[in-house]
Simulated assay, not measured.
Amino acid sequence: MIERLQVSPYELPLHRIWESARGGFVWRRGWLIQASAEGLHGYGDCAPLPAAGTETPEAAWEALRQAQACAASRSAETLLDALAPVLAAAPAARFALECALLDLASRRRGVPLRHGLSECARDEVPVNAMLGPLGTLAPADLQTACDAGFKVLKIKVGLQDPTAELKHLVELARHLPPGIGLRLDANGAWELDAARRLIDGLNPLPIESLEEPLREPDADRLAALQTGAAFPLARDESLHGPLHRRLADLDPATLGVRRIVLKPAVVGGLARTLTLSARARAAGVEVVVTSLVESAAGLWPTAQLAAAIGSPIPHGLATADWLDADLGPAPRPRHGQIDLPRTAGSGFDPSP
């Protein structure tokens, strides 16, 4: 039984702006969740980001307040069920609560969280480097990431004139070592004709994938673009919005792309993301898991989930270095991957 559910607000500065075609931010604000029982604690992070598909901070706080009010003396299994009507429109709050409960359960069982999600979970997770907006990058920035062992370098595009961006990418690609791919994220920046021209120009380059090319995503238009692309197109934030209420019934084969990007705080939890990932991979659709630039309390369980999914494609989890401060030690990649602890729980422990 849960003895106590503690909700503590936090503010964490970024060392520079996180920028995309949908806007940017320089702070991550949220709540650290701590579920306690029998002297053990499990942790979760509720850091809503409406531009990415979560609820507003106000809605998240209301959901957490109600969870705190009814958590005492309930089992972990019944708490989420009891809160289902409240959490239906609060995926970031649901993610945080589920992480705390699963972390606590895995600590009580004495196993890593990932093994509670899948018996076949890996002990390491390949990740991409997150380099930021294209306009800020020089060849030396790419070389630094390559020297650190990353094989996939993620770059935000769609912030400047498409022709200028393509020219910049062609120049950067000239300096890439063999075997290194560029993962581009347009965040829905382009109209159809511009996206088609960009893809034609990108095809000769070492592009690993392109996320959200269309301002108005449509499965048929995306499928037509995918036919002309030599690399996977991916859907991320466009999986939500109008699709959000039927994510549980989503057929990944009908999305018009070869890849989906899943953020557990937007999907509404680890278990839901694991289920959706399994359906996607069964349909031949690739899966990448990414963070919302959460604190270490959110990044650790997300990395555990990626290990349980087991996709060999690098995930978007190398985001801890963007924060100037954190709630505790965060997972940090070495040689392009995150090695997960063999100890019980998610791996998160709060700083004193």
Results as ranks from 00 to 15, higher is better:
L153S: 13
L142H: 08
T78G: 12
V86I: 12
P112I: 00
T136P: 04
V111N: 01
A93M: 00
P112C: 13
D103H: 00
G149K: 05
I155Y: 03
D103F: 00
G110A: 15
D81I: 11
L137M: 08
L102W: 12
L131H: 05
S106A: 13
A89F: 11
D147R: 12
K154W: 03
C146P: 07
T136W: 06
P85R: 02
D123T: 14
A89G: 12
K151N: 07
T78E: 14
G158D: 07
K151A: 12
D123K: 05
G116Q: 06
N128R: 09
D81T: 11
E119H: 07
A92N: 02
A88T: 09
K156G: 10
T136S: 11
A100V: 01
L83H: 14
A140H: 00
V86W: 11
L137K: 04
L97K: 07
P126S: 06
A148D: 10
F95Q: 08
H115S: 01
P112G: 13
P133W: 07
K156P: 01
G135L: 06
A138F: 12
I155G: 09
P139S: 10
G158E: 13
F150T: 08
E98V: 03
G116I: 00
G135K: 05
R114E: 07
L153W: 14
A105Y: 00
L117K: 13
N128L: 07
C146L: 04
D141E: 08
H115P: 00
V125N: 05
K151V: 12
G158Q: 10
R94K: 02
V125Q: 10
A100E: 02
V111L: 14
C120W: 07
P85I: 11
L113K: 11
V157R: 11
F150H: 13
A138P: 07
V125P: 01
A138D: 03
S106I: 02
A88P: 06
L137W: 10
A84C: 10
A100S: 00
D103M: 04
A82W: 06
M130G: 13
T144V: 14
M130Y: 05
A129S: 12
A140I: 06
E124T: 15
R94A: 14
G110Q: 03
G116P: 14
T78C: 07
D141C: 09
M130H: 09
A138V: 10
A93W: 03
L97F: 15
M130N: 08
L131D: 06
V127W: 05
P112Q: 06
I155E: 09
A92V: 02
A140K: 02
L113P: 14
K154T: 01
K154M: 06
A148C: 13
V86D: 13
A105C: 03
A138C: 09
R94T: 10
V86R: 14
E124Q: 15
E124C: 15
D141S: 09
L131A: 07
A140M: 04
P91H: 13
V157L: 04
S118V: 14
A93I: 00
L113R: 04
G110H: 08
E119A: 15
D103Q: 08
A140V: 00
L87V: 06
A100W: 07
V111F: 06
A100K: 05
